[in-house]
Each structure stands twice: as C-alpha cells, then as structure tokens.
Computed example of a mutant assay.
Amino acid sequence: MISQQRNITRMPVWIRQNLGKETHYQDTSRSVHENALHTVCEEARCPNRGECWSRGTATFMLLGDTCTRACGFCAVKTGKPEWFDKDEPARVARAVAELKLSYIVLTSVNRDDLPDGGAGIFAETLKLLRLQNAQIGVEFLTPDFRNCQQAAIELMQQTLTALPDGVRRDLVWGHNVETVPRLYREARKGSKYERSLDMLALAAKLSGVESKSALMLGLGETREEVLEVLQDLRKQGVNRVSLGQYLRPSLQHLPVQEYIHPDEFAAYEVAAREMGFGWVKAGPMVRSSYFAEEEQLATLG
C-alpha cells in the first residue's frame, strides 16, 4: 500500500537535472513540433528532456497523447482517445532524417481501444525507418498489448523478416514493469504484473530481438521485492534493465516514499549484473530510454 499522506518534498543533493551543454535543443524541438509529433519527453514531463534534446535525441510517442489507462505515477493524460493518424510513421521517419539520428526509441500511450493495440503503427514506423536508413538502431518501448500480445509479436516478426537483404533485422524491445507486484493496484491501474512478464517473454523469443525492462524506485518497495522482480525478468529472458528514481510529476500523482541513495542504485546494478543481465543502467536520474544509444554501442556493436 502506498501512503497518500507521505511525500518527501525536499529533494536530496543527488537529484539534479542536467540541462545539457550541446546545441541541438532548438533543432530537436523544431523537428518534433513541425512534424506534429508527440514525445514522452514532453508528455511525461521527463526531467532529462533538456539534456537529451540538447544532444539531438528524443523518444517519439506514437498514437497520440491520450492514454486509455490511468497509472498513478504518469503525467501523460488519460481519457478516451480520438486520435489516429496512419501518416504518423512517415512523419516520424522525416523527423529522424532531419535530426540525422542513428538510433531511435519509439514508445506510445496505451491504446486498448484499438483492435491491435497500436502494434500496426509500431510495425509501419519500423519498416519506414529501416527502408530510409538500413542500419539505424531501433528500440521499442511498448504497452503490454493487453488483448493482442501474440498478434503483435507475430506482426513484428513478419515485419523484420520481410525487410530487404542488407537491412538490419534486429530490434531492442522494451516493456517496463515499472514497480513491484504489491504496488500494481495503485501505481499501474489496468495493468497486471504477470501480463507484463508474458509480454517480455514473448519478445525475448523473437529472432534478433533483445528484450528490456525498467523499474522506478521510491514508491515504497523493499530491496527484497526489487531483487525478486529482477529475478523474474531474467527468468523471462530479459537481457537489459534500467532502474531510476520515481519523481512525482504533480500533486495529483502518487507521493514519493523515499529518495534512493546513489550507493543503493550502484548495489542494484551489481546485483543485476550478477544475475546475468547483459546491460544495466541504474541511478537516480536514469529513465528507460536515457542514453539508449549507448546500449547500442555496448551490446549490439
């Protein structure tokens, strides 16, 4: 149970937003907005937007800005989506070309209202990106595709297989479990821990695909619970994991129960590597797509 009364308002000295020292912020902003795209950087009020956009990177959020679920930690608005645009994949590809990106992370809101959960838009965007740049690195951060997991998996495998010779057919497929099972009822309404594990297990079995997940800490979980989740992820074949600090986006969201010290994050990183994760990123400001391109260099070559 997450205490609604407790909230630590004074942030410790190790919580610091890096605004970035590079010069690409305006170019990133212009390309995103001129192509009428959404980003999780803006919609979820990510604290790393300044740093990432200044490096010329962004995480594009497909399928609009309205989510069909109401997670207690997330700043993305919830409601009944009316937005669907079959031309969105082409606009994403255009923005990626303008920004000269070699690695791109694609995420989306939950679209439980769509028969395919939005999987078709992911697949079409992947195809256009690879046809435009045969060697671009692509990472998905998808919903759990509640009503159509197997169909989504099969569609993505077909899409990768159908790419022409000489075009990359690998993929990083992420889906975040976010927190420990005990806190799902409040933190992840509409989601189920077991269903998230099923999604990751299916993705891990795809040819050429590495699966990835993430946890946010500070909602009241115990160390033992975190380690159990990491073990569950490894059992499902997940090879990549990130752990970061939960930061309350507004007073309407779940309160922070604890600010985790950097030394504790370092200990979690050691534990995760000992469990066999091939790539681990852990720290207070880490988010699931933070420096995702470094993962490409570290594990894909």
Rank of each mutant, 00 (worst) to 15 (best):
residue 138 V to T: 13
residue 146 R to V: 08
residue 206 L to S: 05
residue 243 L to T: 08
residue 209 V to H: 00
residue 267 A to D: 07
residue 253 H to P: 06
residue 140 F to I: 15
residue 146 R to F: 14
residue 37 L to I: 15
residue 114 L to R: 11
residue 30 R to Y: 12
residue 3 S to V: 15
residue 195 R to H: 14
residue 290 Y to C: 08
residue 65 D to A: 14
residue 277 F to C: 12
residue 49 R to P: 06
residue 242 S to F: 05
residue 223 R to E: 13
residue 268 Y to Q: 06
residue 300 L to N: 08
residue 170 D to Q: 06
residue 102 S to W: 07
residue 295 E to K: 07
residue 137 G to S: 03
residue 293 E to T: 15
residue 91 R to Q: 09
residue 88 E to Y: 07
residue 53 W to M: 05
residue 212 K to I: 05
residue 59 T to W: 02
residue 224 E to H: 03
residue 124 E to M: 03
residue 286 V to F: 12
residue 57 T to W: 00
residue 219 L to W: 03
residue 119 A to G: 01
residue 239 N to G: 15
residue 106 L to W: 03
residue 216 M to I: 14
residue 268 Y to F: 14
residue 13 V to G: 02
residue 248 R to W: 05
residue 197 L to M: 12
residue 211 S to I: 05
residue 183 L to G: 02
residue 207 S to Q: 08
residue 148 C to S: 11
residue 133 N to M: 10
residue 110 N to V: 05
residue 140 F to M: 15
residue 11 M to L: 09
residue 171 L to A: 14
residue 280 V to D: 12
residue 103 Y to S: 08
residue 243 L to I: 07
residue 202 L to F: 02
residue 172 V to E: 00
residue 91 R to L: 07
residue 161 T to W: 03
residue 200 L to W: 06
residue 280 V to I: 11
residue 173 W to H: 12
residue 157 Q to F: 01
residue 232 D to E: 03
residue 272 A to C: 10
residue 278 G to R: 02
residue 8 I to N: 11
residue 132 Q to L: 06
residue 162 A to W: 09
residue 208 G to K: 01
residue 119 A to F: 01
residue 157 Q to T: 04
residue 166 G to R: 09
residue 279 W to Y: 09
residue 61 M to S: 15
residue 228 E to M: 04
residue 168 R to H: 13
residue 115 P to L: 07
residue 217 L to Y: 01
residue 276 G to E: 06
residue 179 T to V: 11
residue 111 R to Y: 07
residue 242 S to T: 15
residue 18 N to I: 14
residue 221 E to L: 03
residue 255 P to T: 11
residue 66 T to W: 14
residue 198 D to A: 15
residue 147 N to E: 14
residue 222 T to D: 06
residue 292 A to P: 13
residue 150 Q to M: 13
residue 152 A to C: 12
residue 134 A to V: 06
residue 128 L to R: 11
residue 212 K to F: 01
residue 270 V to C: 14
residue 203 A to F: 00
residue 212 K to Y: 02
residue 272 A to V: 10
residue 67 C to E: 09
residue 258 E to L: 12
residue 120 G to L: 00
residue 50 G to Y: 06
residue 136 I to R: 04
residue 133 N to Y: 10
residue 288 S to F: 01
residue 300 L to P: 08
residue 82 E to M: 07
residue 298 A to R: 09
residue 239 N to E: 15
residue 36 A to K: 14
residue 225 E to L: 06
residue 278 G to N: 10
residue 27 D to G: 03
residue 244 G to Q: 13
residue 56 G to W: 04
residue 226 V to I: 11
residue 295 E to L: 12
residue 182 R to P: 04
residue 98 E to G: 00
residue 180 V to Y: 00
residue 265 F to S: 11
residue 252 Q to I: 00
residue 20 G to C: 05
residue 3 S to M: 12
residue 301 G to I: 09
residue 257 Q to S: 13
residue 183 L to V: 09
residue 188 R to Q: 08
residue 204 A to E: 04
residue 51 E to I: 07
residue 193 Y to W: 00
residue 162 A to Q: 10
residue 33 H to L: 15
residue 19 L to N: 11
residue 204 A to H: 00
residue 125 T to P: 05
residue 109 V to P: 01
residue 229 V to P: 01
residue 139 E to Q: 15
residue 260 I to C: 03
residue 60 F to K: 06
residue 222 T to E: 01
residue 31 S to R: 11
residue 280 V to N: 10
residue 248 R to M: 04
residue 110 N to G: 04
residue 147 N to M: 14
residue 164 P to T: 08
residue 187 A to V: 02
residue 141 L to F: 08
residue 288 S to H: 02
residue 126 L to D: 04
